[in-house]
Write a protein that binds this DNA or RNA. Structure first.
Length: 554
RNA sequence: GCGCUCGUAGCUCAGUGGAUAGAGCACAGGCCUCCGAAGCCUGGGGUCGUGGGUUCAAAUCCCGCCGAGCGCGCCA
């Protein structure tokens, strides 16, 4: 629609120039926006105000010249007005809006899908929790945001891959193995000193206990070093399986689980470094090998190979990103917690040092999550292992509420998760509000089916009968859905979906209060059933993008 | 100290160059003989942290200051 209006306006400006009302030298690309208030029409443009400075004429006069030359051959406008300081407001005809109902019927769960991505390959890497312990609430947020973003990009026409990077290498893993080994020996009555920097959480003991339950105390015979190495392997397996299970409980499925260790084993790191050597951004200092990331806006240069010959995490990450790019992705999207934002410049620098444009990689930084219960902040500490895990949260509030809540806010703000609110089955709780609208419509449709009224076919239905304000408001909102998908996908802000879902649910409820769907007028019943079923379809589609269920009863 | 993110109604947040700055919650009052009241309607409530600048137009862009969160390893 925006394109249609732009074409109309551009032509009008052209004709105004020919008529000598606007100087030929003027040049402008019309920009359209949706006015906040519907009394200002469905679309508005500011071209007249932009042109005013070029033409040295008052903006309203320029607007008049343009409006005069608008030639709406296809007649999708009902009215064009000049308002305020020089806005041109466009009012679309009701007839045009009613066409969307037919479109929704036709496209069904594909309504809202676009081809803006043109099949480009996009990878979304998210969660990537270290497999050394349970996932925290922040991981839940990245999971909800990443999965919804992946759904959105798919709907927008991209070819999307969901990927989880498994940090199964390095010091952290070693400490993890030692921690489990120590607890294992401790439970079996050995006198052990728990590693000073070891993982304190209760779950370490649980893992150790599980191993004892299954295989007894036979590993006590191993040396301490062997034990740590051995326990690292089996305990890591357990944790990773657990992570997969919890994510699956949330409905999040990854296409690729990429192991950091595989980069070390395949010599991918050496290859990446030797490629960087050719670019002259590599230098040696203090016995270590460095990458000059300061050449690309980083604070300081970074070590790739330590003095002891071991590659750093950063070196592995460079190899990982090089691997991603070699796999042919047109765009990489990483979702990271705010505690990693200091790492952004470094990785972007590496992308450029490898010879790729910086915008190949988009990094979304998500702020962390605080848990509130009954008006009180739940304190958590990683060090002592005292925390509420994602698994516990899912058990308590359910996947739908958790996902919806995690999506509700912009990732730029820290999120206060109110666990009582998420659990409450009342209108305070937005997820119920939206789901209720869907269930309510399903109930109406069941009722209509019993009466023999319902037909999903628009043929023979007179949609012109839909002319109440609340009906037209609802239709307008339905027609907005594709645009919501477009902006949320292009700006990569899935939280927009929650607001749209709430607006749509609200407009349905208003309609429902004002208009009776199943009444005495059979023709009107049919038309309203089409409207209501379209609303159900779009609610279902938007909830689907968010990964939240659309219940028929609740 | 430096960097990133943020500061909008009592609370939680939308609004990222346009018109009178919005929503939910909370608070006060109203609406079910009829398709789901988990709903709807009405009302009060604001120095957009602060001081400058750019612009026809600034909550939005730029600079300073104040305040909050996070980061600043040859950890991952």
């Amino acid at each position: 629609m925006k394109e249609n209006l732009a074409k109309l306006t551009t032509n009008a400006i052209l004709h105004a120039k020919e008529a000598g009302e606007v100087p030929l030298s003027c040049n402008v690309k019309p920009f359209f926006e949706r006015p906040k208030d519907k009394i200002h029409g469905d679309w508005a443009t500011n071209v007249a105000m932009v042109l005013a400075s070029q033409t040295k004429q008052p903006p309203r006069k320029v607007a008049e010249s343009i409006v005069k030359h608008i030639d709406d051959k296809k007649r999708f406008l009902s009215k064009v007005e000049i308002a305020g300081p020089g806005f041109i407001n466009f009012y679309l005809s009701d007839r045009w809006f009613r066409e969307t109902l037919k479109e929704i019927k036709l496209k069904r769960d594909k309504f809202g899908h676009l081809d803006m991505g043109c099949g480009e390959k996009v990878q979304v890497e998210f969660v990537s929790a270290n497999p050394v312990g349970p996932m925290h609430l922040g991981h839940g947020r990245w999971a909800a945001v990443g999965d919804a973003l992946a759904n959105l990009m798919t709907a927008a026409g991209y070819d999307v891959t969901r990927e989880f990077y498994v940090n199964d290498y390095g010091n952290q893993m070693r400490i993890f193995g030692c921690s489990v080994a120590a607890r294992y020996a401790e439970i079996l009555g050995e006198d052990v000193v728990f590693p000073e920097d070891g993982y304190q959480g209760e779950y370490i003991k649980e893992i150790a206990q599980e191993i004892i339950d299954k295989e007894g105390g036979k590993y006590l015979k191993l040396s301490e070093e062997q034990r740590g190495e051995f326990f690292k392997k089996i305990a890591y397996r357990q944790v990773l399986d657990h992570i997969k299970k919890v994510l699956l409980d949330m409905g999040v499925k990854f296409d690729v689980w990429f192991s950091e260790t595989s980069l070390h084993e395949s010599r991918a790191i050496e290859e990446a470094i030797s490629e960087l050597r050719e670019q002259e951004y590599i230098f040696e200092k203090d016995g270590a090998l460095w990458l000059r990331t300061t050449a690309f806006k980083d604070d300081k240069d970074r070590v790739l190979i330590r003095e002891n010959g071991e590659p750093t995490y950063f070196a592995a990450d460079i190899a990982y990103h090089k691997n991603k790019l070699n796999r042919g992705f047109d765009k990489l999207i990483n979702i990271w917690g705010a505690d990693h934002h200091g790492y952004v410049q470094r990785v972007k620098a590496a992308i450029r040092a490898l010879g790729y444009p910086e915008d190949k990689l988009e990094i979304i930084i998500g702020q962390l999550v605080n848990l509130w219960r009954g008006g009180e902040l739940v304190r958590m500490s990683k060090r002592t292992g005292e925390m509420v895990t994602l698994e516990e949260l899912l058990e308590e509030v359910g996947s739908d509420a958790a996902r919806y809540f995690f999506l509700m806010r912009s990732t730029d703000t820290p999120f206060d998760f109110d666990i009582e609110l998420a659990k409450s089955q009342s209108s305070d709780n937005p997820v119920y509000y939206v789901q209720y609208a869907h269930a309510r419509i399903c109930s109406i449709i069941r009722f209509a089916e019993e009466k023999g009224f319902f037909s999903s076919d628009t043929k023979g239905v007179n949609l012109e009968l839909l002319c109440e304000e609340s009906e037209l408001d609802l239709i307008r909102k339905l027609a907005e859905f594709e645009e919501v998908v477009e902006t949320s996908a292009s700006k990569m802000i899935p939280y927009r979906l929650t607001k749209y879902a709430e607006d749509l649910a609200s407009l349905f409820h208003v309609f429902y209060t004002k208009c009776r769907v199943i009444g005495d007028d059979v023709e009107l019943n049919k038309a309203r059933l089409i409207l209501v079923d379209s609303a159900r379809q779009v609610l279902s589609n938007v909830l689907g993008l968010m990964g939240v269920s659309a219940p028929e009863k609740m």
